[in-house]
Design a protein around this nucleic acid. Structure first.
Lengths: 338, 338
DNA sequence: TTGAAAGCGCTAACAG
DNA sequence: CTGTTAGCGCTTTCAA
């Protein structure tokens, strides 16, 4: 068991001071006019003992951790884990590490996560805010910490926001079904006052408004199991037998819906047209394949990274802005009337 | 912007010493015979200023970070993100935080990740080892750090390992196809010398050996895109036109395979029987639904947590053990001959 | 019942 | 070209 190596033990070993060693380790030996001989001596020794500096001590001293905290709704949800992965890669390049935490979209969890991250002194926060988190977020911005919100945001907050045009996306999805000839289109979404879900509902209403069709909306609670969602959708279908088209507000609701259709022996594309919000790698493989309103996840991740990096650089030109990205309609078979 | 609060500023504010404040913060005021008055005074003040202790300083001082590092192959892969989520929840309860890092199963990435984690002084390591990582892992165990490997392991290492019975699982999958009446069964897997993939191949060979059938194996490289995998599988099918059954070594290979079948207009269940290794929430919804050898992800996560927690507790009875969990055959339509 | 002092490993002035 | 010193925020003897 190799004993702990510190800058001091190294200094002693090579016969120099800790300062000198520190400078060399940080690659600023040359510009601080440390002799080449000393540099070489230290570097060789470092190599030999396989030294890795104590990031904690460094962070404590400098007040900079090179860690970014990221709140996701659920790290096992494909939408969030794809963004997480993109952000991980992007910030990696900028020399930052990420601390992911799942909130399940619950305020108490989110508060706890932020407390933890604050304790770890993270340099910045990337947050998919839960309802009611505004106060906590305000605290962070007041403390001068870079904050980037994604997927949703509160207009009242002075934060950087990366979202998609949910309203237009949902409208496009509903229109797609109507244009294909489906007449009675329902929406299955979450019980939520959050802007991203509200917008999706509005988009649906916009689309139906154009033909003054009756709106039929099922709102299921957050954090239900797929089985619970499937059950709710089944009941919704049984109560609204004239429905012949369905827009789903999230990826997993679409999955639950497909299960419900299967249970009720409804044939997608024939008995019922389907469009889902959020694409899924598997949608192309379903029979029939499922049309989706795709969020540009890589693009979202890139934007998050870009904003965070400029904010971290304390770029004086940096201002909190809201970036709205477009969704894409990925047309497949489930929205084609057969 | 509320200024930084330290134990000292608090001490000054309430007219006590830093030591006293520290004891109270850590809830050991009573047993150190701090007066109730002092305790109350400090606690009230803490409440008021919304204080959260600097974890870095604490960690630097105590040598304990309460952070566990976890290497996954890819945080956006459903298998890994499910396990990650389970471990996150489990260790959370034990008061630990997790630092996830993706290796893409590349040695250099894994080495880098471990360097980072070492720098952050994490208390323990949960690793899905990449090929060639044995030396680095040995260093960790030598340094007395708890290490739990999962998904695969090296028998030569003195680590705790949590894996599934890949050989038996794969065998069961191949047998399932044969029992359904498929005659010429191929295997699509990864080019890999890692034990979990080798075992799956062996399981396939075991099964076919029983009927002395010809083995046909396609091994694709790691980290290919779905399109590349689909292409490879298509070519494999075109070269082996007698194949009427296919076992897939991983989740995403099965997905690529289904795409290939679709491209070639092969009907699953009729032209070709299919079994995938690793279940997928969507497999039930495919038409026909896809039979899978399911890994018990929640169970794996629980085992990882349990081993890590006992190792962290320095339980003297703790010994490096290898836990082998069983897979389950989830029988669906794709392995039923029509 | 409380406090002073040392030190975890590192960096940043400043002084030679 | 290199070293001394102080201190980041916390815990931990030890002493009072």
């Amino acid at each position: 068991m190799s004993k702990k190596q510190s800058i001091h033990t190294i200094a002693k070993e090579v016969g120099l001071s800790a300062t000198t060693v520190s400078l060399i380790i940080n690659g600023v030996g040359k510009e601080n006019r440390i002799s080449d001989a000393a540099i070489k001596r230290v570097e060789d020794y470092l190599e030999k003992i396989d030294y890795s500096p104590n990031v904690l001590a460094k962070a404590l001293r400098t007040g900079k951790t090179n860690v970014i905290g990221m709140l996701v709704e659920d790290i096992s949800d494909p939408f969030f884990s794809s963004i997480a992965r993109g952000v991980e890669v992007g910030l990696e390049e900028a020399g930052y590490r990420i601390f992911f935490m799942s909130t399940k979209n619950k305020l108490e969890n989110a508060k706890f996560c932020l407390d933890v991250l604050k304790g770890y002194n993270v340099d910045g926060y990337i947050i998919a805010p839960t309802p009611g988190l505004e106060k906590e977020i305000k605290k962070l911005t007041k403390a001068g910490k870079p904050v980037v919100l994604y997927d949703r945001y509160s207009p009242e907050l002075q934060t950087c926001n990366i979202v998609v045009d949910n309203r237009r996306g949902a409208m496009t999805g509903a229109m797609e079904l109507m244009n294909a000839g489906y007449k009675n289109i329902g929406l299955v979404t979450l019980v939520s006052k959050q802007v991203q879900m509200e917008d999706r509902k509005l988009g649906y209403i916009d689309a139906l408004g154009t033909i003054h069709s009756e709106k039929r909306v099922l709102e299921v609670p957050y954090n239900q199991t797929t089985e619970q969602n499937t059950l709710a959708i089944r009941e919704f279908l049984l109560k609204n037998t004239t429905l012949d088209g369905m827009l789903f507000g999230t990826n997993y609701l679409a999955i639950a819906g497909l299960q419900a259709f299967k249970d009720l022996k409804l044939t997608v594309g024939k008995d019922i047209g389907v469009v889902g919000f959020d694409d899924n790698t598997n949608f192309a493989l379903f029979t029939p394949s499922i049309t989706a309103i795709a969020q540009p996840v890589e693009h979202i991740a890139r934007c998050i990274v870009k904003e965070m990096v400029t904010a971290l650089a304390k770029d004086p030109n940096w201002l909190p802005t809201t970036t709205i990205l477009n969704t894409t309609l990925v047309k497949r078979e489930s929205s084609t009337k057969v």
